[in-house]
């Protein structure tokens, strides 16, 4: 899929340049773009280091566990098919908590363990169970409270208020989560499971 997007961008750009008679500009643009890309990626290091350091402190202070406990009632209500005390619940909570806090490194392993645990409850191991679908609906729409990389990129490109997008981002995320979970619940009810 990305092959298509990438090729389309380059081919249509090249054809437009050829048609407009400024092919020479392509060479020049390519040189500066590569340079700018490196500057951008390396420019992120400072802010990312600060943020990843803080996240590590929060993790070691038990923020992920505290968050997971707070999410417990929500998770229990959303997964009626998972028996109480099943390890899947704990892994799912830890995954969501790590996602919300932005401890990306901890989120994926917990999520994969949650899928494994859900698979043990799945009657047909080749077909996604309703609980898996709900978990992924939550996982793909619920995202970190502080979009660090975005804030860092904004700071890097000279924004007057790099963090001003944090609250609007949280509101937009909340809406997408509600829509995804709502749709998932509707489908589940219609299928009678």
């Amino acid at each position: 899929m990305l092959n298509w997007v990438w090729m389309l961008l380059m081919m249509s750009g090249f054809l437009a340049a050829a048609a407009g008679g400024h092919v020479a500009s392509v060479t020049q643009v390519v040189m500066t773009s590569g340079q700018e890309a490196v500057e951008t990626a390396l420019g992120l290091v400072g802010i990312m280091a600060l943020w990843m350091g803080l996240t590590r402190i929060a993790e070691e202070a038990g923020l992920v566990d505290a968050m997971a406990r707070a999410l417990m009632p929500l998770v229990r209500g959303l997964f009626p098919s998972v028996p109480e005390g099943h390890p899947a619940l704990r892994f799912m909570m830890l995954n969501l908590a790590a996602n919300v806090i932005g401890a990306g490194g901890a989120a994926t392993p917990m999520g994969l363990k949650a899928m494994e645990a859900l698979q043990t409850l799945n009657p047909d191991p080749k077909v996604a169970s309703p609980a898996m679908c709900t978990f992924l609906a939550l996982n793909t729409t619920c995202i970190t409270l502080v979009p660090t990389t975005v804030v860092a990129l904004r700071a890097l490109s000279g924004s007057r208020a790099p963090a001003e997008i944090v609250v609007p981002t949280i509101l937009a995320t909340a809406f997408s989560t509600v829509v995804a979970i709502g749709t998932d619940a509707t489908i589940r009810r219609r299928h009678g499971s």
Binding site: W6, L9, M10, S12, G13, F14, A17, H22, V29, T32
Partner: peptide, 14 residues
């Protein structure tokens, strides 16, 4: 990869 592709896309007038 993205900056170069977008650079061509923009620079060529597309």
């Amino acid at each position: 990869a993205i900056f170069v592709a977008l650079g061509i896309f923009r620079g060529g007038g597309a």
